[in-house]
Amino acid sequence: MAEGINIEQIVQEVLDRVLQSSTGVEDMETVTSLTGVKSLPGQKGDKLVNVPFELISKVANDAATRANAAAKEAEESIAGLEDKTQDAIDAAKDANDAAAKAEDAVELVENTTIASLQGATARFSGIIEEGEIKPDKSTVPGGEIVWVRNAKRFAYRVEGSLHGDWESDGIPSSAMFQKNGIPLADKLYMQGTSLYVLDAGDLKVLAYRHEPISEDDFEALPEKDDNILYLIYEED
């Protein structure tokens, strides 16, 4: 070893030359593509190490795997929810169908009951040619049910007024004759010894029973119906 050479000076000179020939991280070339790049520099403790891209991509791959698993689980949950939703829709439809059938059954029972209560015939008191029918409901007793020709409907006549709806003790209710102001078509109406039916919305005589009358009494009748057969006898 030559005299006058200091070991520390030699080490320092070597370090200076290494530093001069080294490239700092901030001085490295920045690339725009990973093609051909295999690793990144890194520091582990006091050492500089190479970090392979396989390790970096593993983190991303693991994250992608977990994301895919979560997505699959979400899809399965959604599919299960869709199945449950469809089951609920089907159950609601079945319930609606059952409710509709129940309503139809109730309506059938109601109609049958009403028909039974109304009977096949209804008796009224007389026929008037015209009158103004009030839409209100009358509960005044002592009136009578009449057919109003110009209105082509039944009415309750009491205290000089005609009412389109009524409910009074001792008087057949309006439901026996009409519904919502429209006369019931499929029934017979009786007045005295005459039997009437609805024809083209008007009340027509179906049958009439009259005691034998004389020719004078026949001529004195204020109205004669072509559909009525009159029995006339001659006095001795």
Rank of each mutant, 00 (worst) to 15 (best):
T113M: 06
I128N: 08
E129F: 11
A120Q: 06
G126N: 03
E110Y: 04
G119I: 15
A115L: 06
V106Y: 07
I114E: 06
R123M: 01
I127T: 11
A115H: 04
A105Q: 10
A115E: 04
K134L: 11
G131Y: 07
T121W: 08
G126Y: 06
I133C: 08
N111H: 11
A105R: 15
F124V: 08
G126P: 01
S125V: 14
T112A: 09
T112F: 01
V109I: 12
N111Y: 01
I127F: 05
T112D: 06
E129T: 08
S125N: 12
Q118H: 10
A122D: 06
I133T: 06
S116W: 07
V106I: 09
S116V: 12
Q118Y: 03
V106M: 00
T121C: 09
V106R: 09
K134F: 06
I133N: 01
E107F: 02
A120Y: 09
I114H: 08
V106W: 02
I127L: 09
D104G: 05
G131V: 01
S125K: 08
E110N: 03
F124Q: 14
E110V: 05
V106G: 06
K134A: 04
E107H: 11
Q118V: 13
I128T: 12
I128Q: 04
A115W: 06
G126E: 01
K134Y: 00
A122T: 13
E110W: 00
